[in-house]
Amino acid sequence: KYFGTAKARYDFCARDRSELSLKEGDIIKILNKKGQQGWWRGEIYGRVGWFPANYVEEDYS
């Protein structure tokens, strides 16, 4: 189950295995919004990890 999707506004390079690298334009499935302050958990291309919420724009459609 996921909470919708978000589109990456910027590139983000994961610093460890718990984080999710993003490329601008990627569409991420949002799995959890209750991580550390400002971090969401998501899935993209079969990978799961945490990413900074301010790097994405949530899709409300």
Rank of each mutant, 00 (worst) to 15 (best):
S21D: 15
G38S: 05
R41N: 07
I30S: 04
Q36S: 10
R47G: 04
E57F: 10
Y60I: 13
R41H: 12
K34R: 14
A14N: 03
C13R: 14
I27M: 10
K29E: 05
K23W: 02
L22V: 07
K1I: 03
N54T: 12
Q37H: 14
S21Q: 04
K29M: 12
G42C: 01
G25N: 03
N54S: 13
D26P: 00
A53C: 12
K29P: 06
K33I: 06
D59H: 12
K33P: 06
R47C: 08
G25H: 00
S61D: 10
Q36D: 12
N32Y: 11
G25W: 05
L31Y: 10
R41I: 06
D16Y: 06
A14P: 07
L20T: 04
K7Q: 12
W39V: 05
P52L: 01
R41W: 11
K33E: 06
K33N: 03
N54V: 12
G25R: 04
E43G: 03
G38F: 02
T5F: 15
I27D: 11
A53Y: 07
S21W: 00
D11S: 09
W39Q: 08
T5C: 11
P52T: 02
W39E: 02
G25D: 05
E24P: 12
K23F: 04
F3Y: 14
S21E: 13
G25S: 02
E19F: 04
I27F: 06
S61V: 10
K7A: 06
R17Y: 15
T5P: 06
Y2C: 09
C13T: 15
D11A: 12
K29F: 05
E19W: 06
R17Q: 13
Y60P: 10
Y45H: 15
E58D: 06
R17I: 12
V48C: 10
K34P: 11
L31M: 07
K7T: 14
I44V: 14
D16L: 06
R15N: 06
Q36G: 10
F51S: 01
L20Y: 04
N32V: 09
G38N: 08
A53R: 11
K7E: 05
Y2D: 14
Q36C: 09
W40M: 06
R15V: 06
A8L: 03
F3S: 11
W40Y: 10
